Computed example of a mutant assay.
Amino acid sequence: MTVAVQQQVFEIIAKQAKVEVDAVKPESTLKDLGVASLEAIELIFDIEEHFDIHFPDQQGANFDSDTAQSLVDAVQKALDEKAAG
C-alpha cells in the first residue's frame, strides 16, 4: 500500500470530520472523529470521486467500527482491482 493513498484518504476524512489531518489515526473510527452517518456517506462519495473508483455496495462503511485504515485498505483494493482491469 502506498503512503500517498493513505495520506489522501486521511485528508479527505479530516476535511469531512472538520479536524486536522494529524487527528486522523489508522485506528480512528469515523464515529471517534465525529463523522455522522450522512456525512460518512458523503465521505465515501468523495473518496470514490477522488480516486475514480467505485466501492461495491456491500462494502458500505460501518461508522461505529470501521477505522480510517479499513477505508484506506478498501481504496487500495479498489485501485488494485481497477489496475488489474
Rank of each mutant, 00 (worst) to 15 (best):
E49I: 02
D32R: 13
E81V: 06
P26I: 05
K25T: 03
T29M: 09
Q59R: 13
S28P: 03
V21I: 13
H54V: 08
G34A: 08
L79W: 13
F63W: 06
Q8P: 02
L30I: 08
G34L: 05
D73A: 10
L71H: 10
S70N: 09
D64Y: 00
K18I: 01
H50N: 15
V24N: 07
A78K: 04
H54L: 04
V9T: 05
E49F: 03
A61N: 04
A17F: 05
A68W: 02
V5I: 15
V24S: 07
I12E: 04
S37L: 14
V5Y: 15
Q58I: 08
G85C: 09
K82V: 05
I47E: 00
H50W: 00
D64C: 00
Q59L: 13
I44Q: 04
A40L: 13
E48M: 07
Q16W: 13
T67W: 15
L71R: 04
Q8G: 10
D22G: 07
F51I: 03
E39Y: 14
T29C: 11
V19Y: 10
V3Q: 06
A74L: 00
P26G: 11
N62D: 15
D32T: 06
T29D: 12
F63M: 10
H50R: 08
T67V: 11
K15V: 12
L43R: 05
E48S: 08
S65C: 04
D57T: 07
F63I: 15
L71W: 02
F45C: 11
S65F: 12
Q58W: 01
T2E: 10
E81G: 00
Q7T: 14
Q69G: 03
L38A: 15
E20R: 14
S28N: 04
F10K: 03
A83E: 04
F45K: 08
Q6L: 06
S37R: 13
E20C: 01
A84V: 06
E20P: 01
Q7P: 03
L30D: 09
F45Q: 08
K25N: 00
A68L: 12
S37I: 15
D64G: 10
P56T: 09
K15H: 12
K25E: 03
D22N: 11
F55N: 03
E49L: 05
D64S: 09
P56I: 08
A74I: 00
A61F: 06
F51P: 01
I44R: 11
V21F: 03
A68M: 11
S65Q: 12
G34V: 09
Q7G: 07
Q69L: 12
I12W: 03
I47Q: 01
K82P: 08
Q16R: 15
D46C: 07
A78R: 06
G60F: 15
G85M: 12
D80V: 13
S65D: 12
D57S: 07
E20K: 14
E49N: 14
Q6V: 03
Q69C: 05
L30M: 13
Q16L: 13
A36L: 01
V19C: 14
D57V: 07
M1V: 10
L30Q: 08
F51D: 06
K18W: 10
Q58A: 14
V19G: 07
A23E: 12
Q59S: 02
A74K: 00
Q59F: 15
A4I: 01
A36K: 00
V24D: 08
S70G: 04
T67G: 05
